[in-house]
């Protein structure tokens, strides 16, 4: 049986959960450990923390957030943001993370993915890809530095290269949709799912519960990720899962 995972995502900076539209205009959404516990109780299948702080102080804070979370939350935890070398990955894994997501640093040095996979296993090497539809021509382009810097690299080709290089999962965010509540970029999701044999997490744009269903059934994603619809209690995880289950998605009930 194939089941779909529902993953609340917490963007964390300086020890607080924040949310912005297209990575800017950040607002405070609460304490990450508290939110993580609430999501666990509500039936989250997994949690993702993205450290959107660039500073080294912020990364230290993140390690402690991960450690405190791991004391009370017993579901898988992915942590990304600021992971530049295998030592960064090691510290997060030791603190209690199960997977680490790399983004900018993997584009600068693709061997980082292989290094993490070799050292800790493919299952904990996640590559986060921030992609945007090309303005001219077909396809999607990879962006780095929190979605600010274009790379010229094709997102599907990059995902394929990462999978061949030992990645265990792709966390795929549409920069066009992130924060818009217009739903996932289903074409992008489908293109990456069809190109790689590893699990793909769809991210960016969820505003309704039907968007979660579409990500799984139309986009073909193995997991669907959302942030603000849960932080602001627009829906509980339980409501989301009931809706998904009654619309044809196999998912662990709460």
């Amino acid at each position: 049986m194939r089941s779909i995972r529902l993953i609340p995502c917490l963007d964390v900076t300086d020890g607080r959960v924040v949310k912005g539209v297209r990575f800017v205009d950040l607002t405070d959404e609460g304490d990450p450990v508290e939110l993580a516990s609430r999501y666990d109780r509500e039936g989250a299948d997994e949690l993702t923390f993205l450290d959107i702080t660039a500073s080294s102080d912020g990364r230290e804070t993140m390690v402690s957030v991960v450690a405190r979370t791991a004391e009370q939350v017993f579901i898988p935890l992915t942590v990304g943001g600021g992971v530049r070398v295998t030592e960064d990955a090691r510290r997060l894994l030791r603190a209690g993370a199960d997977k680490v997501a790399v983004n900018t640093a993997a584009l600068e040095r693709p061997a980082l993915v292989r290094d993490i996979a070799d050292e800790f296993g493919c299952q904990c090497a996640v590559v986060a890809i921030d992609a945007r539809a090309r303005i001219e021509g077909a396809g999607w382009e990879v962006y780095t530095h929190g979605g600010r810097r274009p790379t010229g690299i094709d997102a599907v080709a990059w995902a394929t290269a990462c999978a061949a290089n030992g990645a265990g999962e792709i966390l795929l965010t549409s920069m066009d949709r992130d924060g818009t509540k217009d739903g996932f970029d289903l074409e992008l999701t489908r293109a990456v799912v069809d190109a790689v044999g590893i699990p793909v997490v769809a991210s960016g744009g969820v505003g309704t519960l039907q968007h979660l269903v579409d990500g799984a059934l139309v986009g073909g994603a193995d997991a669907v990720l959302a942030a603000s619809i849960f932080h602001r209690r627009q829906f509980t995880l339980g409501e989301a899962k009931s809706y998904m289950a009654s619309h044809g998605v196999t998912i662990r009930p709460v």
């Binding site: 049986m1 299948d45 299952q123 590893i198 699990p199 193995d222």
Partner: peptide, 11 residues
């Protein structure tokens, strides 16, 4: 015929 790894909840 199924994805490797199995990375999911199952019954």
């Amino acid at each position: 015929g199924v994805k490797h790894p199995q990375m999911q909840w199952n019954q």
